[in-house]
């Protein structure tokens, strides 16, 4: 285990998403001593996915705090600490365990600032891993971001790539609100060039990851990669020019970018790894319908996880994740006979 932080900042700037977030944590903990990391196995063990490796050695047990397995109180305690002047990063090992922190998250953290008429802030980041893959079974594979985005007062961030993850994480730590930062475990090891130095990506800003003029794919987190792969095939095989918008932050939503892309392309499909019913895909489709209906050349389409508990068996598990082929097929239907 590298004992100091410099060893963790790799000189080869193509780094993984996991390493990028770790870098962000190092930097933020270095520059603000009120930033503390709290969670199960985040300290000496360096995280069960090695996602907090080296922090304990650098910042010590006072700032990198191993906790009992008490999600509800760990999170509640972080809210109290945030109200009292600390800036906690709380880790919940699996997004599925958000169910255990729901009261403290929804009834306390999300409302404190409002209820106190601005008197108290809750500057904290709840970091958790989500997503389907690796046969973790029904209780370790859920993506519950839409639940959280439904709650006023919470910010929900879901990066798709390393550079974004780093910039967004730093913004999340500096934000004065409870921010839920969700990483799909299947993106942990995706590498990309991450600039050195301070680069903060503001929350609530979507990014156009590929420019196009005939259809927009809106996606988040891991689904962005599916969208990009589909866009390539659509161009090569069907000559369809596809724009890919990575929403990056679900709440608050960057409505401006969504709307202006649809104005340009006239077609939209929304892609998500969470459940389809009552989820973020419906929200975006409805937003488009409300604001830019007149620009649409086709109904807004959605592709998301089917409404089924995530099964363990690989043959069934893989059916839960919208595939590149499905996206290509769905987009093609939006062009009717013209393709």
């Amino acid at each position: 285990m590298p004992p100091d932080s410099s060893a963790n900042i790799q000189s080869d700037r193509n780094i993984t998403l996991k390493a990028a977030v770790l870098e962000a944590m190092f930097e933020e903990m270095k520059c603000d001593e009120n930033v503390v990391l709290i969670g199960e196995d985040v300290g000496a063990a360096g995280g069960v996915f090695k996602q907090t490796e080296g922090l304990f050695e650098t910042f010590g047990a006072d700032r990198v705090i191993d906790t009992p397995i008490s999600e509800s109180a760990i999170f509640g305690l972080s809210v109290g600490a945030a109200m009292a002047g600390s800036r906690p990063i709380v880790e919940v090992m699996f997004g599925d365990f958000l169910t255990l922190v729901m009261d403290q998250l929804v009834n306390q953290a999300a409302k404190v600032h409002y209820m106190s008429a601005g008197g108290f802030n809750v500057p904290l980041v709840l970091r958790t891993g989500i997503g389907i893959g690796g046969s973790l079974g029904p209780q370790h594979s859920q993506s519950l971001h839409s639940w959280l985005a439904h709650i006023p007062g919470l910010k929900v961030v879901m990066p798709s790539s390393a550079a974004d993850a780093k910039g967004l994480f730093k913004a999340a730590v500096r934000d004065n609100n409870p921010v839920i930062f969700m990483e799909d475990r299947m993106t942990y090891n995706l590498k990309e060039h991450v600039p050195t130095g301070e680069k903060i990506i503001p929350l609530a800003s979507a990014a156009v990851k590929r420019k196009g003029v005939e259809v927009t794919i809106f996606a988040i987190s891991r689904a962005v990669h599916t969208a990009l792969a589909a866009a390539e095939i659509l161009l090569e095989e069907k000559n369809i020019s596809t724009e890919v918008v990575d929403l990056r932050t679900l709440a608050p939503l960057d409505v401006e970018t969504i709307v202006s892309s649809v104005r340009k392309t006239g077609r939209a499909i929304v892609l998500d790894g969470g459940y389809k019913s009552f989820g973020i895909t419906g929200e975006i489709a409805a937003t488009i319908g409300e604001l830019v209906f007149d620009y649409l050349d086709a109904p807004v389409m959605r592709l998301a996880a089917p409404d089924i508990p995530v099964p363990y068996s690989p043959s069934l598990e893989s059916l839960m994740v919208p595939s590149v082929d499905q996206v290509v097929a769905k987009v093609s239907t939006m062009f009717g006979d013209s393709v």
Partner: peptide
């Protein structure tokens, strides 16, 4: 192994 003859027909795996 996530197979049909499993007690949970492959939906649960070792954890369940």
């Amino acid at each position: 192994l996530g197979r049909v003859d499993g007690y949970n027909k492959g939906r649960g795996g070792t954890l369940h």
